[in-house]
Write a protein that binds this DNA or RNA. Structure first.
Length: 736
DNA sequence: GACCTGCTGCGGTTTG
């Protein structure tokens, strides 16, 4: 190896001799900057380490080469390194990448997840050593069902490596993992060093405090200094047909082409012959597009290169497509939801396309990171944006052409390097309840103060104060809830309902899952659709990019046998809440309306749509006015994100108005602007978050909220919405 | 008007 920089020599020389030989055999010319700095941090210090770099920067090696160097000579029994990943597929990927190296170093490496071979798990239990690659749910199961084994395996770890850390910074799964890590530390009374691997994220300080809540400042942060590749961008505008309404559907022969048909025409020509990713936003739109592409290939009598990829498709179909993308010997475009955003290796693609405007900068950046990964290749992004046909009865909000404006605003924020920071999670109570049950089951009984200490040391439960937790425990022990029981000596044990809940197979995950039909074709599973689809023999389906007829329904096993058919119908995929838009994006949209520059990346139709949106903004006098009348309803324009709008909606609801929050503000039904202004003007003081929480309707949103006391959930609502409520007076001033 | 993620232990049978 010919080191090109002196600091590289130093890092390289610090690595284990076997690893140095392995590096030479890989033909690496030098260590990358991120690898060099990570080796220094891990081998030259004793702190936790956070590595934030793009997917292709070699951060897995950056972390594992020095970690393996450190643990190579360990003789004490017990596993040295616990690697945690949000995806089984990623575990399998990393296992393949590390297996050879570990074998040579005689360090056992074991996959531990639901589909991993049982034999290897048994082997490692007999002689606990080396590395374990695991999911949070499998950690949960290990602690809960086999706590003696867990202690033997995980009681003396040297390192915990958390991959895709950004996926754990927000949401219930991140809360669960934080608690699991603190429970692991209690097993052996040692705190392993934590290494976090993350895509480039907005707020590194926040990620550092997730990694080490007790001492966030001590975390060594290694951020990739490499700039992303050059960006080539086009935004294409499409006007829908006058008859187009509702969600995306299959193409109808003999009718004038809809906007989606024209988008498919364009993308089919442009993307054919190379590897691309087309993010379509919803599973329904993925299927609608995939069907169109397949029909175009058939009409042109060429092999189809476009295939769907989403969470309802079977693992086999998804892996086939991932492999085809990775091998790169047949041109392939994956039409996907967010399934291809996370780090499963699919090689490099020529371009990325989006259907509809980006809703968040974090997802836009993640998606862009999938393009232009080859040295010197530009990142190519196409955004296909549809706006409705202008009719006289069109809602004034739609006249503002918000989707085109949102796209332009998102591009501005992309160039401004903005990324949404995570907020306080609404699932803290639900996960605290879940972890309480799990810890009690693990230990066969526990004391309140010890349970609370474990949760608190995890970090993200800090907003649950000691009296809150006592209230939660008391509620869980009520006879009609029966999750807990207290022995006369104060020891807390599981109650009857608690035993039942913990025994279920559904207990390991902190997110909910619905019942589904499984679609089977000649012994092959295609995927699943929600049970809420009403199906009989003869029902038609469009799924996995093909069209099917149901030939048998097994009501008990919930299996549908299907065969190919000429026609089909898109199934219902249960939809949940929407992805909230951030304040900054809403504010940037207003800035786009108020400026005159025409971005060069817009095509002719998109330019015209932007122009129309700006004209209608001026016509509605929105530079000075905050109200738009629509029939008998009034749109209140806040130019703030979803969190703020939902707080305003609660306030107006409390005042007796009927309203709904949307991206740009709040729509008040059956009220004039004067009435809304009157309500706001009559407020002598701004209601506090606590006052408002009394009017929140849907407090129970997370998996175990049903078992939590309502007053506690209301108090937590005031905390999650505290910052929005604090900014309410300013908003009310603007609206008066 | 959204998306994604995960899963034990035991007793029985079969196979090498």
């Amino acid at each position: 190896m010919q080191p090109s920089a002196s600091k590289g020599v130093d890092s390289f020389d610090r690595l284990h001799p076997q690893i140095r030989r392995w590096i030479r055999e890989q033909g690496w010319q030098e260590l990358r900057d991120v690898q060099d700095r990570t080796i220094q941090a891990i081998l030259g210090g004793d702190t936790d380490v956070l590595i934030a770099a793009s997917t292709a920067s070699g951060k897995t090696e950056a972390a594992f080469l020095p970690v393996l160097t450190r643990v190579a000579d360990r003789t004490a029994p017990g596993v040295s390194v616990l690697y945690v990943s949000p995806l089984k597929a990623l575990i399998n990927d990393q296992f393949r990448r590390l297996d050879m190296l570990c074998e040579r170093m005689e360090i056992p490496i074991t996959r531990w997840h639901g589909d991993a071979p049982q034999g290897a798990k048994t082997r490692i239990l007999r002689a606990p050593r080396g590395l374990i690659l695991i999911t949070p749910e499998s950690v949960e199961a290990l602690l809960l069902r086999r706590s003696a084994d867990a202690e033997k395996l995980l009681g003396s770890l040297d390192f915990v490596v958390i991959d895709e850390l950004h996926a754990f910074l927000q949401g219930p799964r991140g809360l669960q993992l934080a608690s699991l890590l603190s429970r692991i530390e209690l097993l052996g009374g040692v705190r392993p060093r934590r290494i976090g691997l993350s895509a480039t994220i907005g707020d590194l300080a926040l990620a550092a405090s997730w990694l080490n809540p007790a001492s966030p400042g001590s975390v060594a942060i290694i951020e990739s200094s490499a700039d992303g590749p050059e960006l080539r961008l086009q935004v294409r505008g499409y006007v829908r047909e006058p008859t187009e309404a509702g969600p995306d559907d299959l193409e109808i022969e003999g009718e004038p082409p809809k906007a989606l048909d024209r988008i498919a025409d364009h993308a089919f020509e442009i993307l054919r012959g190379s590897n691309n990713l087309f993010f379509a936003g919803s599973r329904r739109s993925v299927e609608a597009l995939a069907d169109r592409f397949r029909r175009r290939a058939e009409a042109a009598n060429v092999p189809n290169e476009f295939f769907p990829h989403h969470g309802s498709l079977s693992k086999e179909l998804r892996e086939e497509l991932e492999l085809r993308l990775k091998k790169g010997d047949a041109p392939t475009t994956a039409v996907a939801t967010t399934t291809l955003e996370l780090g499963v290796d699919i090689g490099s693609v020529k371009s990325v396309a989006l259907l509809g405007p980006p809703r968040s900068l974090s997802s836009l950046r993640q998606r862009l990171g999938r393009s232009g990964r080859r040295q010197g290749a530009p990142a190519v992004l196409r955004v296909y944006v549809r706006e409705p046909h202008l009719a006289s009865d069109l809602d004034p909000l739609e006249r503002l052409r918000p989707d085109i404006v949102q796209t332009v605003a998102a591009v501005r924020l992309l160039l401004d390097h903005f990324v949404e920071p995570p907020g306080l999670d609404p699932a803290v109570v639900s996960v605290a309840l879940h972890q309480t049950l799990s810890m009690i089951a693990q230990r066969g009984g526990a004391r309140a103060d010890s349970l609370y200490r474990s949760l608190r040391s995890a970090g993200p439960f800090a907003e649950i104060y000691s009296p809150d937790y006592a209230e939660l425990l008391r509620w869980m022990a009520r006879p009609e809830v029966a999750l807990l029981e207290q022995a006369p000596d104060g020891l807390i044990m599981l109650g009857e309902a608690g035993e039942r809940l913990v025994a279920g197979r559904d207990f390991y995950a902190v997110f909910e899952s619905d019942e589904e039909w499984r679609l089977s074709n000649g012994g092959r599973t295609l995927g699943v659709i929600p049970l809420s689809n009403v199906i009989t023999v003869g029902s038609l389906l469009a799924f996995a990019g093909q069209r099917w007829r149901v030939v048998a329904v097994d009501d008990r096993a919930k299996v549908l046998e299907v065969t190919r058919h000429r026609s089909g119908r898109l199934p219902k995929f249960d939809r949940r809440s929407v992805e909230p838009i951030h304040d900054r994006l809403a504010a940037e949209m207003r800035a786009v309306y108020q400026s005159a520059d025409v971005p060069p990346y817009l095509d002719a139709v998109a330019r015209q749509l932007l122009e129309e949106g700006r004209q209608n903004f001026v016509e509605a006098q929105l530079a000075v006015r905050r109200y738009v009348n629509a029939g008998g309803d009034t749109h209140v324009m806040t130019w703030r994100g979803f969190a703020m709008n939902s707080v305003l909606a609660v306030l107006l609801t409390a005042a007796g108005l009927e309203c709904e929050a949307h991206d740009l503000g709040v729509t008040v039904a059956n009220a004039t602007d004067n009435e809304v202004m009157g309500v706001l003007g009559n407020l002598t003081t701004t209601p506090s978050a606590q006052d408002l929480s009394e009017f929140v309707g849907n407090l129970r949103t997370a998996k175990y909220d049903a078992f939590a006391p309502e007053p506690l959930l209301r108090r937590m609502w005031t905390k999650t919405h505290a910052s929005a409520c604090a900014r309410l007076p300013q908003l009310i001033k603007e609206l008066s």
